[in-house]
Computed example of a mutant assay.
Amino acid sequence: MPSAEVLATGTELLSGDLVDTNSARIARALQPLSIPLVQITVVGDDLPRMVAAIRAAMARSEILIVSGGLGPTVDDVTREAVAEALGRPLIFDPELFESIRARFQAFGFPMPENNRRQAFRPQGSQVIPNPIGTAPGFLVEEGDRVLFALPGVPRELERMLTESVIPYLERRFPPAEAMVWRVVRTIGMGESVIDERLRDLLKGENPQVGLNAHPGMVDIRIRARGATLEEAAARAEAAVQTIRERLRWAVYGEGTCTPEEALIAGLRERGLTLATLERGTLGLLGGRLAAADPESHVFRIGEVRSRLVTAPEHAAEAIRRQAGTAVGLAAEVLPEGENFQIAVAMATSEGSRSLQRGHRGPLPHAAEWAANAAMGLLWRWLQEAP
């Protein structure tokens, strides 16, 4: 089975000015091919460092995907780095040059002279067309290995992945075994508790099970292998069912499902309506619920106040009565020295539930914790209610 690596280039990725989202796109694109992504490396616009990183990656893995550095400016050095790392000269491609110039003409602009640099590529490489941008990519076959160079603009990279890179990989590296990925989403149960309940699964090799913690939530990632797709899917499904049995109410969905989507669906199924009241949360709780219910089938009103005049459980009951909804949800984040105190509560006609916790970290992180804790409290009630 071939392994793949990503080399994300750009000094802006190292300075924190830009977040690398391209590597995640590439990882997701490789999953259906059963090609494991084993390493992601980030390197700045430094030719010697980039050359060293390319050589190291090509020595380790059969597939290397380089993102960024294909623009027309002097700090776009991916072409030069690939050529030097693989011991190939850069050649000027007249046809590629004309296609770049034609693209500018189609945009209604004259081509700047420095865009001529984009018509150079390593000798023996193959052009990867860029249907929506001016920076063409290329691939280089080096024995049993292959390198892809793609532009760093996310929508251009994603289009070239879909139309050129993935079809090439499907032909060149047909899977020796099938792989299936599943993600189980949980809320309101701590990572340590989940780790204890799934200890045997986390130690297993097939399927491989891992945890990924977020504020107030934990994702459980499953990768199962098999001689056939059906066999791999069956192993993944068995793991999912075991997880659901052991974690019960904490599981709110799978795949890309969000807690607010699960809550809105669960409340609507029961014919229940919801209102929220929050303070110090940056409006995250009501904002997320409103986005998940744009037609207001369930979420009727969300208020953000400068302070709550009463305890969160009383605030939840007050907003429930004010809005005439079945459920009221309240969340508050209060500064406490250098830290924050988070308090959330829910109220129905049958009573209320609440929880509190301290938080060390910036306000946006505390606000996310509060929103997720409130939704987790309501989700658990939904699962446990008769």
Rank of each mutant, 00 (worst) to 15 (best):
I40C: 09
R197F: 08
L377K: 04
R270I: 08
F173R: 08
E384Y: 04
G376K: 00
R88G: 04
C257V: 13
F138K: 08
I65V: 15
G266D: 07
V309P: 06
D293F: 04
R79D: 12
V180E: 15
L64K: 03
P136I: 07
F138C: 10
A331T: 05
A371F: 02
R155I: 07
R199F: 07
T9S: 01
E191W: 01
A238N: 09
I342D: 06
A385D: 13
T41K: 07
E230P: 03
L96E: 11
A366S: 10
F104R: 10
G16R: 06
E317Q: 14
L282T: 07
L289K: 02
L147Q: 02
G188I: 01
D293T: 09
F173I: 04
Q208P: 01
N339K: 14
R101C: 07
D219M: 01
S352K: 04
A265N: 02
M217Y: 00
N339E: 13
E230M: 09
E156N: 14
E84H: 00
V127Y: 08
A4P: 04
T41C: 05
P386Y: 08
G253Q: 12
E158H: 15
W381T: 04
T310K: 09
N22K: 13
A176Y: 02
E237W: 02
A4G: 07
N206D: 15
W181D: 13
F138L: 10
R197G: 04
I301E: 14
V66M: 12
P48M: 04
A385V: 13
V165P: 07
G143Q: 06
V180T: 15
P364Y: 09
R246L: 15
G44P: 01
I128Q: 12
E95W: 06
E163A: 13
G188Q: 02
A367T: 06
D144F: 03
A290Y: 05
L169W: 09
F92I: 08
L201A: 06
A227R: 15
L157R: 14
N212H: 12
H365E: 14
L211P: 00
A331S: 11
R155P: 02
D293H: 08
H297D: 12
G87D: 00
A176Q: 15
A371R: 04
R357K: 15
G376R: 00
T228C: 12
V74N: 13
R88P: 05
E177S: 13
S125W: 05
N22Y: 13
T162Y: 04
A366E: 11
G71K: 08
V240T: 10
S23D: 11
G280W: 03
E170Q: 15
T21I: 13
E98P: 01
R116A: 12
V344H: 01
A262Y: 00
L274D: 06
R305H: 05
P110I: 06
D93C: 02
L308M: 14
Q39E: 14
T9M: 03
V251Y: 01
D17G: 14
A292W: 04
P2F: 11
L64Q: 10
